[in-house]
């Protein structure tokens, strides 16, 4: 079906786009950078500080990379949404660390 479609679609848009051409990469990277730059509700320096402090807090518990925390600000209708994404390393929280922190699940 996909093959059929690619033969018979005339739309320039679908013809042009192999899943990830470099312009797509550029667009995605820009969206993130520009979202930070434009955030008026939360000033840009607040964004920078929030990012730093989140890294610090998370790192008290688990070692993560600098780019593991991403912050996005968006607007839906009248609601401003602050979206945080924190990517944990593959192993996640080591169990002994949970115990040290006194957060052992009840038996």
């Amino acid at each position: 079906m996909a093959l059929f479609r690619s033969f018979f679609t005339s739309s320039a848009k679908t013809a042009r786009v192999p899943e990830h051409d470099s312009a797509t990469t550029a667009r995605e990277r820009l969206q993130i950078v520009v979202a930070h730059q434009r955030s008026k509700r939360l000033g840009e320096s607040a964004f920078v500080n929030l990012h730093r402090e989140l890294l610090e807090v998370v790192r008290r518990h688990v070692q993560i990379e600098d780019d593991a925390v991403s912050i996005q600000m968006s607007k839906e209708n009248d609601v401003d949404i602050l979206e945080l994404n924190i990517i944990l390393p593959e192993q996640g929280f080591p169990p002994n660390q949970l115990i040290q922190e006194g957060r052992q699940p009840p038996p």
């Binding site: 990277r29 993130i32 950078v33 990012h51 730093r52 990379e65 600098d66 780019d67 991403s70």
Partner: peptide, 12 residues
């Protein structure tokens, strides 16, 4: 940082 691809890793 953008041209070197590390824009998401800038903390300081």
């Amino acid at each position: 940082d953008l041209l070197m691809g590390c824009e998401r890793r800038v903390v300081y």
